[in-house]
Design a protein around this nucleic acid. Sequence first.
DNA 1: GCCGTTTTCGGCCCGACTGTTTTCAGTCG
Length: 582
Amino acid sequence: MSHSGNKQLSRYLSDLSAVYTYLGGTERFRAAAYRKAAKVVEALPDDIAIYCKKGTLRRLPGIGESIAQKIEEFNKSGKIGKLEALKKQVPYELLDLLSVSGFGPESLRRLHEELGISTHVHLEQAIKQGKISQLPGFGKQKIENMLRGLKLFKDTANRMLLPDAMALADQVIASLTKIPGVLQAAVAGSIRRRKETIGDIDVIVSCHSKDRAKIAAQFVKEPFVERVIVKGITKVSVIHRPSNRQIDLRIMRENEWGSGLHYFTGSREHNIHLRSLASSRGYRISEYGIFNRRSGKWLGGKTEDDIYRILGMSLMPPEMREDHGEIELSIKHEIPELVDMKDLRGDMHMHSTWSDGMNTPEQMTSYIQKHFRYDYTVLSDHSPASVITHGMNAKQVLKQIEKVRAINRNAGNQFLKTGIEVDILMNGELDMPDEILAQLDWVTASIHRGFTKDNTERLLKACENRYVCCIGHPTGRLIGSRAAYPLNMDELIRKAALTGTALEINAQPRRLDLKDEHIRSAVQAGVKLVITTDAHTYADLHNMEFGIYMARRGWCTKNDILNTQSWKEIEHFRDKKRNGNK
DNA sequence: GCCGTTTTCGGCCCGACTGTTTTCAGTCG
């Protein structure tokens, strides 16, 4: 149950952060400490119980004596007494509003103390009855903003998938580029960091300083602007039509382009860490550049590299900027060269009309050869347990092997490889006999049913089969619709390392499975990964880039990804396991 | 509550915009 524990703990730490945020004053620093700890716990590769057992909690960044104790308590009892006690001192039910635009700690405190409001229902009633407008400082505008915030809070729970956000951002960038005076325009924020889901769209332009007001004025007139939230000379926020997403635009001068892009790319945690590091070394960083702290002299900011270089650090790809240790690596100049689309030599998982794909093997092959520079591709249709997908039985597999050979013969090459996505049954066995699997070039084993139980044992057993080359979409999650099944990822990674089994990075935007932090643990454990599209159509084949992004967010180099290697090397990996890792 | 290339105490990223003020606090990214 690896991650449910971490998730719950992270949630409690966030709650503590919210309580201290509400209490305000100097408690906000305590709040910041808990917020950081919550983030750290959320991103941990191993179950929190393991850190407790090994006594390594204190070594985690942002975890000191006090928080470590609370984590120990959580590990033993599932609760944090301090949180339970604090809940009684604050309008706890209101605190989720802290994340809502229009509500800050001070507003909530006054609503509670001066009007006795302690629930959402109270709040809405009080607004309707006009009670709030009697409070000094709560003018008409402010109340309108609060109402908007509440409305948005109700229907923005789900975030956008990365490709949808990228498409929307491209549209915005195209409009910005056409505005007179705009010199450069780019996407920043979590899109640039290639997070799997996106909240707001962040974009940035550069121009001469005299053009800033003009550009801001033109931007809010664009046809996709539903409503303007803020509009100044350097920043504009609008709601996009019809997506109802917020777009934040920053307007920078030419010399501020790099520092502006850096600031606006984030992450927030990365920026805070870097700025505080800069401060301790006598610098000050803002979106306008890097400055000498004492003299205020501008030292650089035309490029992102300026910022890091002046700090004696090396630049890192946006995908790494989550304050997960990349700053420390950068100080040591040990930023790895991350895997790139151009490194990929083949797709290891795709379907055809032989199961639930939309195109024949021939069609898929010729499409790939036309649009990608791959050296090989693995056909991997479903096995019979996947009834709904018209999975192949043993006889059909043998027939398909003949078919693939014929396709290659006709083409005069060995481009198409034989394979299967074999089902892992409820008991961990596979629904295809070993003697059939032994004849295939590549075998991916996946779970397609039993999503609610703990599937650790099933997956471990599948790894033990010498013909299983790779575990497909290991967690089974579907972003926004199905949670990952309970699974001890640490055990799976250990077993994969031990048995020489690869793990899949499935590039379908709704899967992205494994996800970034699992990828990092796998890499650290020496497990090889494959990036695949799991394509069922031509269009799906183009999802490969999203798998690459996830791999980059997991700090993968080319060497960590098996399908950056020649087919000969892949065979070597496969045969090593088949021959008992000798 | 955390943390240390000035510090084990006293800081904690930094700046823009808004609203309701009348010089600024709150909020946001």
